[in-house]
Design a protein around this nucleic acid. Structure first.
Ligand code: MN
Ligand code: MN
Ligand code: ZN
Ligand code: ZN
Lengths: 132, 132
DNA sequence: TAATTATTGCGACTTAGTTGCATTTGTAAA
DNA sequence: TTTACAAATGCAACTAAGTCGCAATAATTA
């Protein structure tokens, strides 16, 4: 089952490449307008994620955000880093900071997910937004 | 606006005290049966959270889990720790490991949320569950 | 005991995400 | 090129988590 080069996939990938932030389904829907169907956006994001092209973060708003896999090469993934979600401008970005996970013996880790929410530099300056 | 000692609040608090894991709304609904209304469980959890009695984690399933604030005394909260969610038995627990968050200058942190999902000791032994 | 007001139950609603199915379209072989 | 096949799409219906308005109930306090 190989992937096909479709209009939707191309459009979504170029959104990711033009911005350096993470996108939720809803953000992409706003950007792409009527050109791509809701369900198609969901399915395309899922495929890009399954293919290791993007990684997925679930933020404290319970929403899935996807970001290009920057540090990953092939099957070697590095997603144990923090993410930041601005409560005012709503941007979600990958942070540099990595987290070294230590679990009790016997535990097996499959997935790591970490988000800090707060106010980004610009929004903190303007003292904006309501806290969560 | 002071809190009242209601049946729902008491029932929910005693669930928290009898188990050492975190609970989602749905887990509590299962445990409490018909005795407490859906909306009441949601509202009670929210109040306990607002009062600093429990803290809140959003796991990678997008669901809110609440756990007793064990390390917190009064207004001094310590929630910058990892959580673990078992993909097989679905238990969610607070881990010991704290995370020291370092944000770029100018950023203001409001909330921290981190979950590792995988298989807990018991479930890993039985090699159970489907990965996420 | 009575007044006040926090809390409840109920139902309607919102939003994120999924799924079945018929149709379209990319791809690669003929 | 055409053809054939499977991957991807659009649409509509659906699920699940969570919220909210409102009238009724019940904990607290005076
Ligand atoms: Mn990231
Ligand atoms: Mn915790
Ligand atoms: Zn911002
Ligand atoms: Zn388990």
């Amino acid at each position: 089952m190989s992937r096909r080069n479709t209009a939707a996939r191309t459009a979504i990938l170029s959104e990711f490449e033009s911005a350096s932030t993470a996108f939720s389904h809803e953000m992409l829907e706003r950007r792409l307008g009527e050109s791509v169907n809701r369900a198609t956006i969901y399915r395309t994001l899922k495929r890009l994620w399954e293919d290791g092209v993007v990684h997925r973060v679930v933020a404290t708003d319970g929403v899935q955000y996807f970001a290009l896999c920057a540090e990953c090469r092939g099957d070697d993934h590095h997603h144990e880093h923090l993410h930041f979600r601005c409560l005012s401008c709503e941007r979600v970005e990958c942070m540099e900071q990595e987290v070294v996970v230590r679990l009790p013996t016997g535990y097996r880790s499959v997935n790591f997910n970490a988000t800090v929410s707060g106010f980004c530099r610009e929004c903190a300056k303007q003292e904006g937004g309501l806290p969560e």
